[in-house]
Design a protein around this nucleic acid. Structure first.
Length: 114
DNA sequence: CATCTGACGACCG
DNA sequence: GCGGTCGCCAGAT
C-alpha cells in the first residue's frame, strides 16, 4: 500500500465537497486505517496539487493542528463549503466516489498500549 | 531489529 | 452518553 493512492484519491475530491479520513481509508480497503490515512496526509511531501483541505474528520470537524486549521477553513469556505462553528454538514458536502461497501471487520480487545 | 508515533474512527465497559 | 483503548501504515528513533 502506497500513500500515493491516497493522494490520488484526495485529488479526485470535487471542488466544494469534502471527505473524511475514514472514508478514504475504506475506499482504500483499510477499514480502521483512518489514522494511517491521516498520517499519510501529515507525511505528505508537498501540498501542491493536493486539496488536503477537503479532508476532515468523520464528524465534519477540522482535525488539523492550529497553523493549518484556519487556512483550511478559509479555503473550504472559499469553495462554498459551510463551516459552521467548525463543523461541516457531511450529509450535504460529504463526497464518496462510486464505490461498493467494504467487508465488515471484527475487533478484539487486548492489553493496553500507548 | 524493536518500538513508538501520528491530520482518525469504531468499539467496549 | 462518555472516556479509554485498539487497529490501521509507513517512517523515525
Amino acid at each position: 500500500m502506497s500513500w500515493d493512492s491516497v493522494y490520488e484519491l484526495v485529488k479526485r475530491i470535487p471542488r466544494g465537497r469534502v471527505t473524511t479520513y475514514g472514508n478514504l481509508a475504506r475506499l482504500l480497503r483499510l477499514p480502521g486505517g483512518a489514522r494511517a490515512v491521516g498520517y499519510a496526509m501529515a507525511a505528505c511531501p508537498s501540498t501542491e496539487g493536493i486539496p488536503w483541505h477537503r479532508v476532515v474528520g468523520a464528524d465534519g470537524w477540522i482535525r488539523v493542528p492550529e497553523p493549518h486549521a484556519s487556512l483550511q477553513r478559509r479555503l473550504l469556505e472559499s469553495e462554498g463549503v459551510v463551516v459552521d462553528g467548525g463543523a461541516i454538514e457531511m450529509k450535504v458536502f460529504g463526497w464518496t466516489p462510486a464505490k461498493k461497501g467494504a467487508p465488515p471487520r471484527r475487533k478484539a480487545k487486548r492489553a493496553k498500549r500507548r
